[in-house]
Design a protein around this nucleic acid. Structure first.
Length: 882
RNA sequence: GGGGUUGUAGCUCAGAUGGUUAGAGUGCCUCGUUGACAUCGAGGAGGUCACAGAUUCGAGUUCUGUCAGCCCCACCA
C-alpha cells in the first residue's frame, strides 16, 4: 500500500472533494424532502468584499451545525447570499471613478448604477468562491442577493405596508450627517469617541444694555445659527432675566433668553446657547419654544451662504475665524480644556455633523415591543445568554430609525412627488400618473434605503416572500442565527422586528453569538493596522480543515479569540495524525478479507475499551453540539482520536496485526475500521474534507460522508459491553504503564529498551484480569513479559499505583539513597492527603451534611491512599535494608 | 454616567448543575530514527486559579467589594 502519501496534504484533495459534493448536489434540499426542517440563513457578506477571518469563523460555526443536522437526517438548508452594502460598495465605485478623473454626478444616476452593477458582476462572485474553499455546504442553487428581484419585491411590500400603517413616515428632523459620505446615517452608525476639546465662554449682551449673559460652548462656529439662550427655570442666578432679549454677537440678531428644564445648572455657566439646526438637544428645545432653525453649515461641512464673510469656510476654519472675531469684539471671556464625546461616521471616521434635513424614519416603539417580548418569553434564546440583556436594554431605549440615505446604490424609496398637486404617493409598483390629480409630472424620491432595511427581511425574503412559497412555509422560522456580537443592533434586532411584524413569528429560535477574531496581540484586525491574516492564504498553506479546527477550538461562545499561526500548525498536526492513523489502518487492510464479522468472544479488552470510549465520546460530542459548545465538542474528538485511539488502541492492536492468527488479526481490523469510520463521521462537521478523503478509502463505507448518518451510541449497541470492569482494568493497566515509563526515565533507561517488570497485586480478581492482558503493559511500556509475584525483588526500582506495586529489578543500577528520597517524597505527599482527608472524615458536619456518595468516595480514596503508603513504606524499608 | 466582560502553567486558552491531589495546546528541559506519523514518541519542570471578605462541612466554580485590562451603551452645551 504505497499510494497513500505519508503526510497530510490537503491541497491535493480539498478542491476536488468540494467540486464532487457540489456536482452531486449534496448541498441542495427541497421543501418536500424528508426530515424535520433545519435552516440557517447566512449573514450575507458584502457582495464585493472578500473573505476575512471573521467570515471564516462565522461560516465554520454555521457549517458545523449544518453538516451535523444534515447527517442527523434533518431536512437541512443553509441559505447563502450576499449584501449590496450600500455605502461601502458605492464608495468603492466612486473611488474608481475618481481615479478616472470623473465622479458620479458627472456620470448621472443611471450610468453610475450601471457601473456599480458591472462592478458587482466583476467582483461579486469572489466571496462565494472563497466561502467554498472553506468547505461551506451552502445550497448555492438558492444563492440570493439583497438587491435581486425577490428581495426587492420584499422590500417594496414591506415599505409600503409600514408606510400605510403609519410606521414609516417622512419628516424634517435633525439627523446624523456625514459630510464625507454625503448622506444621513442612523444613530448606530455613529461611533462616539472622547476627544480633547475646549469649552469657550462667550458673552452675549442684553438688548437693553443692562449687561450680558455668559454662555459656554464646545462649538463656537455654530453661534451663527443661534436663535436663543436657555437657562434652567429654577436657576436663581438667571430667574429674573428670563424673557429678556439678547443680541447675538457678530450677527446682531435678537434672540430670546428662555427657561427650559433640560439645562444643567451645574455645567458651564448654566446658560446654553441654542442652535436648533445643528444640535439634537437644541433642536428639541427649539421645537418646545418655537425657535427658528437657521442652518449655517452645509451638507459638505462648509459654512452656508448668508453668514456673511464666513460663508464657504470649512466648519473648523470658521471656528478659528469666529473665535478671533469674538475675541476682537470682547465677547470671548475664557477658554478651558474640556473632554467630550464626538460622533464619527462608522464608515469613514469623519466627524458627524448633526443637521436638519428631510428624511424617512421607521417608528420604533410599536415594532420594538413584540421584539422585546420574544426574547423575554424565551421564543428567541441567545447563546450565550448574557446578550439577552444587551438586546433588551437597547430595544427599550430605541429611537426612530432613519432609513433614508442620500446615495444611489440601494433600494430606491418607492415614493413619488407630484409637481401638479404637490402630493406624495407611496406605491408598491412604479407609477407614472398621480393618483390624486392624474397629473403626469411625477418625480420619484431620490433617496435609497439603509442597507440594513433589506437585510432585516433576509430570513423571509430569501425563502420566497412576498410569495407564500413552500420554502417559506417549511423553513420559517429558521432555527439559528450565527453572528458576531457587533451586529446585534444593526441586524439581529431588526430581523426580529420585521419577522414578527410580517410573518407573525420570530425569524429564528436561537441566536448563536461569537466574538471577534483578533491578531496575536489581541488587536482588532483592520486594514489601517495592516494586521489582518488572510484566511485564503492560511487555507492554501494548512488546509481548510486545519483553519476550521483552529477557529472552533480554544474559545468559548461570545468571547473574542486571538489568532495564532501556531494554533493552525497544531490543528494541521492533528490532521496529520488522523491521516497517518488512517494510513496505518488502510495499510494493514490491504489484501485482507474485510467482510469478516467477529463473534462476541473474539473481542479482547482493548477492543471493548475503545468501543466503550467511543460511545462515551459520541455522547459528549452530541451533548456539546446541542449546547452550541462547539469548541468543547472538538476537544472531545481531539482527545479521543489522538490519545485513546492513536496512543493506546492502535498500539495495542499491533501484536494481532503482526501475529499469525488470522482470526485475531481480522478482529482487530474489524474494530479498527469500525471505530475509525465512526470517528470520522463524528468529526466530519468539523473537518469535512479530511474525513471525506479518508472515509472513501475505507471498505466499510459507501457514499459521501456528508450524507452518512451522524454517529449515535445506539449504533454501537451490538458491540458495547457495559462493564465497569473494563474501565477499572484499563485504568490499572494505564497507571502501571505510566509508572514503568516513569521509572525508566528516572534512571536514564532508553524508553524503547525492554525491561523486566515484576508486578505485585493483592486483589486476586484484578490480578487475574491484568494477567490476561499483561502484554498490553509489555507493548505500551516497552517491557519484557511480566512476572507476577508476591515477592519483592531485592534490588529494584519500585512504584505504587492504585491496585499494584511495580518493580524494575535493576541490580547495580540502583542508587538506594536516591530511591529512598524519591519514594519518601511520594509517601509524604500521600500522607499529607491522608491527614487532611482523615480530618475531613472526622468532621461530624461533613459526615452529616455531605451527600452519602461523596463521603463514600472519600473513604474509598482514603483507603487506597493508605494502601499506597503501606506499600511505599515496605519498599523504603527494603531499600534501607540493603 | 450606566451596563457587560476578562484576570487559571512562560504564552494562548478549556474547566456543566460548588465535592476536595486544577487540565490542554504551545514553548522550555532530558531521552528516543526498528515497519502509521519527527507535522512523531516517552518523560520532566512549571500554577497560593488577580486581591480581600462572605456563604458553605467543602469555593477556580456562588455572593459582595477592591485592583487591572478590554468592550458596549449614553443628547450635559
Amino acid at each position: 500500500m504505497n499510494n497513500i502519501p505519508k503526510n497530510y496534504e490537503p491541497q491535493k484533495f480539498e478542491r476536488e472533494i468540494y467540486a464532487a459534493w457540489e456536482r452531486d448536489n449534496n448541498f441542495h434540499t427541497t421543501a418536500d424532502a424528508s426530515g424535520d426542517p433545519y435552516c440557517i440563513v447566512i449573514p450575507p457578506p458584502n457582495v464585493t468584499g472578500q473573505l476575512h477571518m471573521g467570515h471564516a469563523l462565522d461560516e465554520t460555526l454555521q457549517d458545523i451545525l449544518i453538516r451535523w443536522h444534515r447527517m442527523k437526517g434533518d431536512n437541512t438548508l443553509w441559505m447563502p447570499g450576499t449584501d449590496h452594502a450600500g455605502i461601502a460598495t458605492q464608495a468603492k465605485v466612486e473611488e474608481s471613478l475618481r481615479k478616472e478623473g470623473t465622479n458620479r454626478y458627472e456620470l448621472g444616476r443611471e450610468k453610475f448604477l450601471e457601473r456599480v452593477w458591472q462592478w458587482k458582476e466583476k467582483f461579486g462572485n469572489r466571496i462565494s468562491y472563497q466561502l467554498r474553499t472553506l468547505g461551506s455546504s451552502c445550497d448555492w442553487e438558492r444563492e440570493r442577493f439583497t438587491m435581486d428581484a425577490g428581495c426587492s419585491a420584499a422590500v417594496r411590500k414591506v415599505f409600503v405596508t409600514l408606510y400605510n400603517e403609519g410606521l414609516i413616515y417622512r419628516g424634517t428632523r435633525i439627523t446624523n450627517w456625514c459630510p464625507k459620505c454625503n448622506t444621513a446615517i442612523s444613530d448606530i452608525e455613529v461611533d462616539h469617541e472622547d476627544e480633547a476639546g475646549h469649552l469657550w465662554h462667550l458673552r452675549y449682551p442684553f438688548k437693553d444694555g443692562t449687561g450680558y449673559i455668559e454662555v459656554a460652548t464646545t462649538r463656537p462656529e455654530t453661534m451663527l445659527g443661534d436663535t436663543g439662550v436657555a437657562v434652567h427655570p429654577d436657576d436663581e442666578r438667571y430667574k429674573n432675566l428670563v424673557g429678556k432679549t439678547l443680541i447675538l454677537p457678530l450677527v446682531n440678531r435678537e434672540i430670546p433668553l428662555f427657561a427650559d428644564s433640560y439645562v444643567d445648572k451645574s455645567f458651564g455657566t448654566g446658560a446654553v446657547k441654542v442652535t436648533p439646526a445643528h444640535d439634537p438637544n437644541d433642536f428639541e428645545m427649539g421645537l418646545r419654544h418655537n425657535l427658528e432653525q437657521i442652518k449655517v453649515i452645509n451638507n459638505n461641512g462648509t459654512m452656508s451662504d448668508g453668514v456673511g464673510k464666513y460663508s464657504g469656510l470649512d466648519r473648523y476654519e470658521c471656528r478659528k475665524v469666529i473665535l478671533d472675531d469674538l475675541q476682537a469684539g470682547g465677547f470671548l471671556v475664557s477658554v478651558e480644556d474640556h473632554n467630550h464625546a464626538v460622533g464619527h461616521c462608522s464608515r469613514c471616521h469623519t466627524t458627524i455633523e448633526p443637521l436638519v434635513s428631510e428624511q424617512w424614519f421607521v417608528k420604533m416603539d410599536t415594532l420594538a415591543k413584540p421584539a422585546i417580548d420574544a426574547v423575554k418569553s424565551g421564543a428567541i434564546k441567545f447563546v450565550p445568554e448574557r446578550f439577552t440583556k444587551i438586546y433588551v436594554n437597547w430595544l427599550e431605549n430605541i429611537r426612530d430609525w432613519c432609513i433614508s440615505r442620500q446615495l444611489w446604490w440601494g433600494h430606491r424609496i418607492p415614493a413619488w412627488y407630484c409637481d401638479d398637486c404637490g402630493k406624495m404617493t407611496v406605491s408598491e409598483v412604479d407609477i407614472d400618473t398621480c393618483p390624486h390629480c392624474h397629473g403626469k409630472n411625477l418625480r420619484r424620491e431620490e433617496d435609497v434605503l439603509d442597507t440594513w432595511f433589506s437585510s432585516a427581511l433576509w430570513p423571509f425574503s430569501t425563502l420566497g416572500y412576498p410569495n407564500e412559497t413552500a420554502e417559506l412555509k417549511k423553513f420559517y422560522p429558521t432555527n439559528v442565527l450565527v453572528t458576531g456580537y457587533d451586529i446585534i443592533f444593526f441586524w439581529v434586532v431588526r430581523m426580529v422586528m420585521m419577522g414578527l411584524k410580517f410573518r407573525g413569528e420570530v425569524p429564528f429560535r436561537h441566536v448563536f453569538i461569537h466574538g471577534l477574531v483578533r491578531d496575536e496581540l489581541g488587536r482588532k484586525m483592520t486594514k489601517s493596522l495592516g494586521n489582518g491574516i488572510d484566511p485564503v492564504e492560511i487555507i492554501d498553506t494548512y488546509g481548510a480543515d486545519s483553519l476550521r479546527f483552529t477557529l472552533v477550538t480554544g474559545n468559548t461562545p461570545g468571547n473574542d479569540m486571538r489568532f495564532f499561526r501556531a494554533k493552525v500548525e497544531s490543528s494541521r498536526n492533528f490532521a496529520n495524525k488522523i491521516w497517518n492513523a488512517s494510513r496505518f489502518v488502510l495499510m494493514n487492510l490491504d489484501g485482507f478479507d474485510t467482510t469478516f464479522k467477529p463473534a462476541r468472544h473474539d473481542f479482547e479488552l482493548a477492543d471493548l475499551w475503545i468501543i466503550y470510549r467511543l460511545a462515551y465520546r459520541i455522547k459528549m460530542v452530541t451533548d456539546n453540539l446541542e449546547k452550541f459548545e462547539l469548541g468543547e465538542a472538538a476537544r472531545q474528538l481531539y482527545e479521543f482520536i489522538w490519545f485513546e485511539f492513536c496512543d493506546y488502541y492502535i498500539e495495542l492492536t499491533k501484536p494481532r496485526l503482526y501475529g499469525d492468527n488470522p482470526r485475531e488479526k481480522a478482529t482487530a481490523l474489524f474494530v479498527l475500521t469500525t471505530v475509525l469510520e465512526c470517528a470520522l463521521r463524528l468529526l466530519h462537521p468539523f473537518m469535512p474534507f479530511l474525513t471525506e478523503a479518508i472515509r472513501q478509502q475505507l471498505p466499510n463505507a459507501t457514499g459521501s460522508i456528508m450524507l452518512a448518518k451522524f454517529p449515535t451510541v445506539d449504533e454501537l449497541n451490538d458491540l458495547l459491553v457495559k462493564k465497569s470492569r473494563i474501565e477499572t482494568c484499563a485504568k490499572i493497566i494505564l497507571n502501571i504503564v505510566k509508572a514503568v515509563r516513569n521509572l525508566k526515565t528516572e534512571v536514564g533507561i532508553d524508553s524503547r529498551k525492554k525491561t523486566r517488570i515484576v508486578l505485585r497485586m493483592s486483589n486476586t480478581r484484578d490480578r487475574l484480569m491484568v494477567m490476561r492482558v499483561s502484554h498490553y503493559v509489555t507493548i505500551l511500556a516497552c517491557a519484557e513479559p511480566i512476572d507476577f509475584s508476591d515477592e519483592k525483588p531485592a534490588h529494584a526500582l519500585s512504584a505504587v499505583v492504585d491496585g499494584a506495586e511495580i518493580f524494575l529489578p535493576l541490580e547495580g543500577l540502583i542508587d538506594a539513597d536516591k530511591e529512598i528520597a524519591r519514594l519518601t517524597k511520594e509517601r509524604d505527599k500521600l500522607q499529607k492527603y491522608i491527614t487532611s482527608t482523615e480530618a475531613r472524615l472526622a468532621n461530624p458536619k461533613f459526615i452529616g451534611k455531605a451527600p452519602a456518595n461523596v463521603v463514600e468516595a472519600e473513604h474509598a480514596k482514603l483507603a487506597t491512599a493508605r494502601d499506597k503508603v503501606t506499600a511505599l513504606d515496605g519498599q523504603i524499608a527494603q531499600l534501607k535494608a540493603l
